[in-house]
Design a protein around this nucleic acid. Sequence first.
DNA 1: GTCCAGGGAATCA
DNA 2: TGATTCCATGGA
Length: 299
Amino acid sequence: MQIKGYIIKNQDSFELKDIFDCGQCFRWNKEPDGSYTGIWSKNVVNVSIISKNQDSTNNILFKGIFETQNYEQEIKRYFDLERDYTKIKNQLSNIDENLRKSTKYGKGIRILNQDLWETIISFIISANNNIPRIKGIIERLSKAYGEKIIFEGKEYYTFPTPDQLKDVTVEEYRNLGLGFRDIRLYETTKMILENKVNLNELKTNPNTLEVRNKLLTLSGVGPKVADCILLFSELKRFEVFPIDVWVRRVMNELYIKEENEEKVSKKKIEKLAIDKFGSLAGLAQQYLFYWRRENGNIA
DNA sequence: GTCCAGGGAATCA
DNA sequence: TGATTCCATGGA
């Protein structure tokens, strides 16, 4: 396979750390030179900022091995480059001071169009887990059952397809360090292989609630994981609002101000999010999540 | 040793 | 519906 390069100049709302370390993805890693290398589908790509412009746009180099001839379009699709994030950030900034600050802090965030299947499995693994360990498990899973691709002398592994996992036992998952999530991975893979949940139907169904309910039938997929799948995968639903411990924390600190954070109900947070952020709740969530995680208490 | 991590499922009121 | 408890694992 041949290495291709693609340069995009004057790109707004695109910062490497904001995109790859904001918590939406698990397979991008920082290189010593500050660039990031990652893999999606059968694409292994290194992304670097060549130069910064005075208007805060960036000139970006995408260099890697691509699955399709039409790699320029694939990059635009995966990195969501057709969407106007400047407009989104302006809309959110008008809501209040917290959104103004958080969108300024995470100004380079773009929500990737990640593969639905991979996102489902990744966020099942994320349950009651921390990001470094989630990344480690996904790497081991890919190395064990995915396809090897060599890029610049290093080995990378594609995320295994449902078919590549069809004969994997619960014990084998346990040995990869999945913990109690082993059975969930096993059952969900089986359900998808047996077409009890049809991924293509989910991709074409415009009704978010219907898709969400279907996702909830999968083992290991509860409300939070379902919302992460809806928001961070190619399903791209910005109106959902995933609530984890960090989001509950930041929402309580900024708006609810309950003394005992654990007492704040999910329902209350959800209602507040819909009232305040509306159809952009998911993006508001991501800017606030990233802002809070990177900076500690900002209230 | 204890606590915590981008929670879910089972159980019980 | 809502609240508790248990679930592996590894790092702090």
